[in-house]
Design a protein around this nucleic acid. Sequence first.
DNA 1: TCCATATTTCGAATATAGTCGAACTATCGA
DNA 2: TCGATAGTTCGACTATATTCGAAATATGGA
Lengths: 104, 104
Amino acid sequence: MAHMREKKHPKMEEIEITDIMYGLSDPARVEIVRLIAQAGKPLTCGELNCDRPKSSMSHHFKILRDTGIIETSIEGKEHLNSLRSTEIEKKFPGILKSILKNIL
Amino acid sequence: MAHMREKKHPKMEEIEITDIMYGLSDPARVEIVRLIAQAGKPLTCGELNCDRPKSSMSHHFKILRDTGIIETSIEGKEHLNSLRSTEIEKKFPGILKSILKNIL
DNA sequence: TCCATATTTCGAATATAGTCGAACTATCGA
DNA sequence: TCGATAGTTCGACTATATTCGAAATATGGA
C-alpha cells in the first residue's frame, strides 16, 4: 500500500520557544543533539548508539522533529538526522548556539 | 510550631542544562520569567497576575526554584522572586541571556 | 522473491506533570 | 487576639511522557 516517502516537519513559524525547551529537557535528546552537532554532518539513528532500545530512540527522534530541533531526510533505508540550525537561528537568535556551546 | 524561615534552593552545581530547559518548557513559567526580567527587580507572586489560581502559580514557582531558574527570599509576608542570572551565566554561559532576548 | 537492515508504529505499563479547590502557615496591623 | 493578606501544601483528578517489546513498513541486495 501507499506509504510516506518523506517525514513531515513543523514549519519553524509554528514552533514556540517552549517547544525548543521541551525538546531539550531530556538527557537522551540532548545527547542526540550533541552527537549530531559534534559530527558536523547528518547522522543516522544507527550511528548514534546511545544504548537504549530502537523504539525508545525513535520516540526521542520524533520529539526532536516535532519540536523543530532536527529534520530527518530519508536516503534509501537510512534516515539522516540533522539540526535545523539555520532556521532556529533565524527564529530564536542565539539560543541554539548557546546551548550547543554548553553541551559540546 | 517551628517553621521554615527561608526557602531552599538547589546549588547551581546540581543543576543540569536539562533542568533549565524543563523549567522553561511551560508557557506559564516562561511568562513568569519574562515578567521578572522585564521588571528588572524581584517580584512577588501577587505582582505577576497571570490569571491562574494561586495554587497553580505556586506550583510553577516551585518548579522554577527547583530547576535553578529563580530564587525566592521571604520579606515579611511577601515572597520576592528574582532570576539567578549571575549564577546561571557562570554555569551555562550565554544561555539565559539568549533566552531572555527571545522572550522580552 | 526472499532476507537482512533500518527505522517506525502500536500498545500497554509505569511515571511524571499540570490544574485547582480547600485547608494550612506565617506575618502584619488594628 | 482577630482578621486580612501572601503564599504554600495537600489531595484528587486528568493529562502527557517515557519505556520498551513486538509487529509493521520500506529499501536494497542476493
